Amino acid sequence: MKQRVKRFWLLLLTGLCFFPGSVCSAIENSSELPVVKIVYARDIDDLPFYVGVEEGFFEQEGVKVELVFIKGEQNALAGVMKNDVQAANISVESLYKLADKEVPVKVVTWLGQAHEGTKCGIHVGVNTPYRTFSDLKGARIATSGNLMPKTMLTHAVHLGGLELKDLRPIYGGRPDNPMQHEAALRAGAVDGFIV
C-alpha cells in the first residue's frame, strides 16, 4: 500500500509525458542531433510542440523533434512501447491505470495547470490531523470541479480505502490565489484543496 501511495504522489508531482528508457542511450551514442518522435493529437495542449518545432527550440537544446499524429491514447501508448515513437501526452486517468499495472513508462514533464511554486495534490493545513489518505474521511475538500481534479480526488480516496461519498467535496469552491487557500484553511472554511 505504501509503495502505491508513493507512486501516486510521484505521478502527481511530475507530469504527463513519457519516454521509454531506450531513448536515452540512443541520444548519448549519436554524433548528430537525435530524432525524437512525439505524438500529437490535434489538441490545443499540443501547441507548445508546434511552437518548439517551428521556432527551433528543440534543436537549440540538442534534439530534433518530429511530430507524429496518432489518434487515441491506447494507440499512442502502443507506439511508445514499441519505440515507433518516443513520447506522447497521456491523461491523468490513464496514468493511474498504467501506474497500477506497473507499465514501464517514465513521466518526464507536467502539462497540467498549477500556480508557480506549488505542487499538485491534496493540500491541507499544517496543523491538521490529516496525514494519510484514510484520515480524510469526512473532510471538506474544495476542488474547481474540472475533470482532472475530480479524477485525482476520486483516485486519492480509493488509495486510502475510502469512497468519494466518504468525503464532503465542494465542487467549484477552489479559489485561484494560493494566498486565499491559506486563508480558507486557517479560517476553517474547508479542510483541504485538491490542485
Rank of each mutant, 00 (worst) to 15 (best):
D166T: 08
T109R: 05
A99K: 00
T143H: 15
Y96A: 00
P169H: 14
L185I: 09
L111Y: 09
Y130M: 03
G112L: 04
N146H: 11
L98D: 01
A88S: 05
D84F: 06
T128W: 00
H123P: 03
T118E: 05
A88D: 07
H181N: 06
M152P: 02
V107P: 12
L162R: 05
P178E: 09
P178R: 12
K97Q: 11
N177D: 15
V108C: 13
V126F: 02
R168Y: 01
G145T: 05
K106M: 14
R186F: 02
L153D: 11
I170C: 08
G161C: 14
L153S: 08
P104A: 02
A114H: 15
V124M: 01
P129D: 04
K101P: 00
V92P: 03
M152Q: 04
G138Y: 01
C120Q: 15
L136D: 00
V105H: 05
L153V: 14
P175K: 12
G117Y: 11
Q113A: 13
L147W: 12
R131E: 13
T151Q: 09
K150M: 15
T128M: 04
T118R: 14
N127Y: 14
K82Q: 10
D135C: 03
A139T: 00
Y130G: 03
K137V: 10
N146D: 13
K119T: 08
L153M: 13
G172Y: 09
A183D: 10
P129Q: 02
V85P: 00
G160I: 06
L111I: 01
T128Y: 00
K82R: 08
G173H: 13
Q180D: 14
G161P: 11
A87H: 05
G173D: 09
P169S: 11
Y130C: 05
D135A: 03
T154N: 12
K137M: 02
G121W: 04
L164Y: 15
Q86W: 15
K165M: 11
Q86F: 11
A88L: 07
L136W: 00
D84N: 01
G138R: 08
T128S: 11
Q86T: 03
V126D: 04
S91R: 00
L162P: 11
F133Q: 09
H181P: 04
H155I: 04
N146P: 03
G138W: 02
M179F: 13
N83Q: 08
S144Q: 12
P104K: 08
V85S: 02
E182T: 15
A183G: 10
K165P: 13
D166E: 08
R186N: 03
R186M: 06
R186D: 04
G117Q: 15
S144P: 10
P175H: 12
D84E: 06
L95A: 13
Q86I: 07
G125Y: 01
A87Y: 11
Y130H: 05
G145M: 10
A139Q: 01
